[in-house]
Design a protein around this nucleic acid. Structure first.
Length: 561
RNA sequence: UGGGCCGUCGCCAAGCGGUAAGGCAACAGGUUUUGAUCCUGUCAUGCGGAGGUUCGAAUCCUCCCGGCCCAGCCA
């Protein structure tokens, strides 16, 4: 971001690391990892984790691996492994040569499974899914031991070997850890370690495997193989930590990373779960994973967010173990801070109303030299043509208004931004009484200076009609009209709380001519309107996406009236 | 008494026994050719509640209240 980014925020995880370092734990090394499953696009909640993990690695002179946790081939896809890498890179992080896949540890994983079997700590269980559930008991009642729990090491070895060779059918059996069916922690009631998946093609290992390890077995082993020191994950995995530790305590791998849980990000007026995002995309309720209304990294990018603003947002919200619900205003403030400093200013009219300046010569064009940034001369200047006919926004004119309305009013004056002061003399309407044109006059002595003897406090934006370029502008707003769309309360599903006005397409917008030369992805402030980004998905036509509006104290003022 | 986790300003969030940081929002002013930006000021005798320990408690203890998570051959 062009303004300074926050650094090294205090949080409980950094305190733990500080203490570990002080105690010379892990020989002073810090190694983290970001372990996405490639079954969807990354969203801003992942960004929180990415910024945490890569940020810690950076600040402690350590490393952060990118590891695909790809143990469930049915739901995963190469497209997702590609998009994830693209998004992490775009956010500004570099895993260098440390790109890993849990699937590349499948051999080692199977070896450790055999160790567990040999130690009598894992067994092959023939119970089907339903039976397994019944035997597991409930939250308040202990489970029962599986009838297969007592199988001999030899038999288990033999059976696991057959599972691995593809001799057994899907669902016919699983490999389970032998822990404690009466544990108050459900995760410790002989959790499944391996299941059979015949015939599915894994995006990395193809058809090499007919068994796939479960998360609870894969994750600790993968962390340990990579020499991770601090394994950061979200709160819902806290109950899994005893299992994480159990696995590492019972295999020969001599590395034991520390799992630490923090709370996931909840952003108001949107949904963050991958399942729900997938649903929105699959059911075509949005245009795709990069729909600018989505909290996905791809969506935010297309919307016009900068990588730096997302990083800064993730730092500002902090890390804790508290259930949170961050206001959209927080995200908006962060992107505004960035774009205010970094986006060149332009003039663009959303709802054009023609203005004819009757005392301005016909066929004359003045080339006004206008600063690209009001506070920063380094942005230079550009030429903005001015002529007898201009467009202003319909919102900026009223036939009558009190003096709170600092825009154009019949028989009153207003400043055309970076241009002249004009007065509205006449209003022209069509048969329906709709205002279709304004007849005005200008004061030639007001270019770059204030008029003599009177004050003109209003300033509005405009575009020369004869030089204007046409464009489509997409105004985006929150996707949902409820702060917690997926809270399941009132018996209303999140899809029923979608905001019908989350996208408003304006096809008749007029822009100052310099914008015709903009590049897809380029960001601007359209003065008095907001920050906009040339759409990168429709490079032929001129389309702009509104990233965020400017702060608007007029809305509040207007409501008071 | 299944287990785990969490309650500090409207929203995030520091604080770790020495007398409540910061950000966002809000409010009140000032500057301004963007009702933007910028600047100034205001905003928790109070830390879920009640007791207790202490010279001193958001920080320690006890009890209570509220919220979140867990019964996939998902992660």
């Amino acid at each position: 971001m062009s303004t300074e980014e926050s650094t090294k925020p205090a949080n409980f995880i950094r305190h733990i690391i500080d203490a570990d370092l002080a105690a010379n734990k892990n020989k002073g090394k810090v190694a983290t990892r970001f372990p996405p499953e490639p079954n969807g696009y990354l969203h801003i909640g992942h960004a929180k984790s990415i910024v945490l993990n890569f940020g810690i690695a950076e600040d402690y002179n350590g490393t952060c691996n990118l590891r695909f946790d790809d143990t469930n081939p049915e739901k995963e896809d190469v497209d997702f492994v590609n998009s994830i890498q693209e998004d992490v890179k775009w956010l500004g992080f570099d895993w260098q040569d440390r790109l890993y896949y849990s699937s590349s540890y499948f051999d080692q994983l199977a070896g450790y499974a055999i160790e567990l079997i040999q130690a009598g700590k894992a067994y092959v269980c023939d119970l089907n899914a339903e039976e397994t559930r019944e035997y597991r008991g409930s939250l308040k009642e202990a489970g029962k031991d599986s009838p297969y729990r007592g199988r001999s090491v030899e038999e288990n070895l033999e059976l696991f070997g057959r599972m691995k060779k593809g001799e057994l059918e899907d669902g016919s059996c699983v490999l389970r850890a032998k822990i404690d069916m009466a544990s108050p922690n459900m995760n410790m009631r002989d959790p499944t370690l391996y299941r059979i998946r015949q015939g599915v093609v894994h995006h990395q290992t193809g058809d090499a495997w007919s068994i796939y390890p479960m998360y609870d077995f894969t994750h600790p082993v993968s962390d340990a193989i990579e020499g991770i020191t601090h394994s950061l994950c979200t709160l819902e995995f806290a109950d899994h930590r005893p299992l994480y530790d159990w696995v590492l305590d019972n295999i020969s791998l001599r590395c034991h990373p520390q799992q630490i849980e923090f709370s996931r990000l909840n952003l108001q007026y949107t949904v963050m779960s991958k399942r729900k995002l997938t649903q929105l995309v699959d059911e075509k309720l949005v245009s795709g994973w990069d729909d600018p209304r989505l909290p996905t990294i791809a969506g935010l990018r297309r919307r016009g967010f900068t990588p730096a603003s997302i990083r800064e947002f993730c730092i500002r919200i902090g890390i804790s173990k508290v259930e949170n619900s961050v206001e959209m205003g927080m995200l908006e403030a962060t992107i505004r801070d960035d774009l205010n400093a970094s986006a060149p200013r332009r003039l663009a009219v959303m709802n054009p109303l023609k203005v004819v300046i009757e005392n301005y010569p016909e066929n004359k064009t003045e080339e006004l030299s206008v600063p690209n940034h009001p506070q920063n001369e380094d942005f230079g200047k550009r030429i903005v043509p001015f002529s007898r006919e201009v467009y202003i926004d319909k919102e900026d004119f009223r036939e009558s208004a009190n003096n709170k309305f600092k825009r154009l009013v019949l028989d009153k004056e207003v400043r055309l931004r970076s241009g002249y002061v004009i007065r509205c003399d006449r209003v022209i309407k069509d048969e329906q009484g709709e205002i279709i044109e304004l007849r005005c006059s200008y004061d030639p002595d007001t270019l770059g200076k204030n008029p003599e003897g009177r004050k003109v406090k209003g300033v509005i934006h405009w575009v020369s009609a004869t030089h204007a370029v046409q464009a489509e502008v997409r105004l985006y707003d929150r996707l949902f009209n409820h702060p917690t769309p997926d809270d399941g309360k009132d018996g209303v599903g999140f899809k029923e709380r979608m905001n019908p006005e989350s996208l408003v397409v304006l096809k008749q917008c007029v822009l100052e001519p310099s914008l015709a030369d903009s590049e897809p992805g380029e960001r601007f402030q359209f003065e008095r309107e907001g920050y906009f980004c040339r759409d990168a998905g429709s490079s032929d036509e001129l389309v702009f996406n509104r990233t965020v509006t400017l702060r608007d104290s007029w809305i509040k003022e207007e409501k008071k009236l």
